[in-house]
């Protein structure tokens, strides 16, 4: 007889327990020193911009879970959400390592890791994501268009960021390119399928494009931090990849026989400055409520 019902369950093999549920440092053992000639605070701000984009879009994609029209597409959206969340985790951890001052302070002894403190303990005005990532979900055509526009722009940025002077950013980009390639292909195929499907699917696709297109320009509007990091060889100025991204988008539009909408520009402050739609606050309220209720919680 065992004293506890759990004793003896494992036959002495401790590796059979699900130990992998606790926190770990996603950059354990990685050299996170800031390269010479790069401002640490700017590098952190840049990592937050890229990381917030993928964190917020990941949360929106997660909201699709169990709601997609087919099981396969539900799984596809969850997979893409997971890829983006993984990228966000590395980018937020890199931001915290570059400039610890950007991490919200929590009660002494809190076990919450830095990347989680950044994700769960900042308010909407401190998020630096583009607004394309945050607007509420619509129908299936909406998520197809959003993923096509976002992943196409992000792929152009990441493919250049692979040469970043910051080794961590370069590594995140190298892996991200492989992942985003699958995301963009998925979105491109569904864009064409919806456009060439039924009258109803085409109408919905063109409606979704009309809704999201005003946010497209912001994907390429350079913030001073992005320009500065690009000049230092660690970042990518999104304006410089616009033509390359447009070529790919035009390929999809041509195959889908969908006219490219006229350019609508962004004026004034953007998501990169912390200016967001009301939707971000509401989304964050749901995303952050449990973590904020238990700032010293262990999971």
């Amino acid at each position: 007889m065992n004293d506890s019902v759990y004793d003896g369950l494992l036959g002495g093999d401790s590796s059979q327990w699900a130990f992998g549920t606790d926190f770990e440092d996603p950059l354990a053992g990685v050299d996170t020193s800031v390269p010479a000639g790069i401002d640490a605070a700017e590098l952190a701000a840049y990592c937050l911009m890229l990381g917030d984009d993928t964190l917020v879009l990941s949360q929106r994609l997660s909201e699709w879970c169990s709601r997609a029209p087919e099981l396969e597409e539900d799984i596809a959206l969850a997979n893409m959400a997971l890829d983006l969340l993984g990228q966000a985790r590395l980018l937020l951890a890199r931001a915290a390592a570059a400039d610890p001052a950007c991490v919200p302070s929590l009660p002494a002894g809190s076990p919450v890791p830095d990347e989680d403190a950044l994700a769960f303990f900042r308010d909407a005005g401190q998020f630096r994501n583009v607004r394309m990532a945050e607007v509420p979900n619509g129908d299936f055509a909406h998520v197809v268009v959003r993923l096509l526009l976002f992943s196409n722009a992000r792929l152009a940025i990441l493919s250049r960021l692979r040469d970043s002077a910051d080794a961590v950013l370069a590594a995140v980009a190298a892996k991200g390119v492989k992942e985003l390639t699958y995301h963009r292909d998925w979105a491109g195929r569904w864009f064409v399928t919806c456009a060439q499907g039924t009258e109803e699917s085409r109408r919905r696709l063109i409606d979704a494009l009309g809704m999201l297109w005003p946010l497209y320009d912001e994907l390429f509007a350079a913030h001073p931090v992005e320009r500065s990091l690009a000049a230092a060889g660690a970042g990518v100025d999104p304006e410089t990849v616009r033509a390359e991204a447009d070529v790919v988008l035009d390929q999809v539009f041509a195959v889908a026989d969908v006219p490219r909408p006229p350019l609508v520009g962004v004026r004034g402050r953007t998501g990169r400055d912390g200016l967001h739609t009301e939707a971000l606050s509401l989304m964050l309220a749901e995303m952050q409520v449990v973590a904020r209720a238990h700032p010293s919680g262990r999971w």
Partner: peptide
């Protein structure tokens, strides 16, 4: 993959 949820389990194993 960036979001591979098995990393922590691999580490602990």
């Amino acid at each position: 993959y960036s979001g591979c949820p098995a990393m922590a389990t691999m580490r602990d194993d």
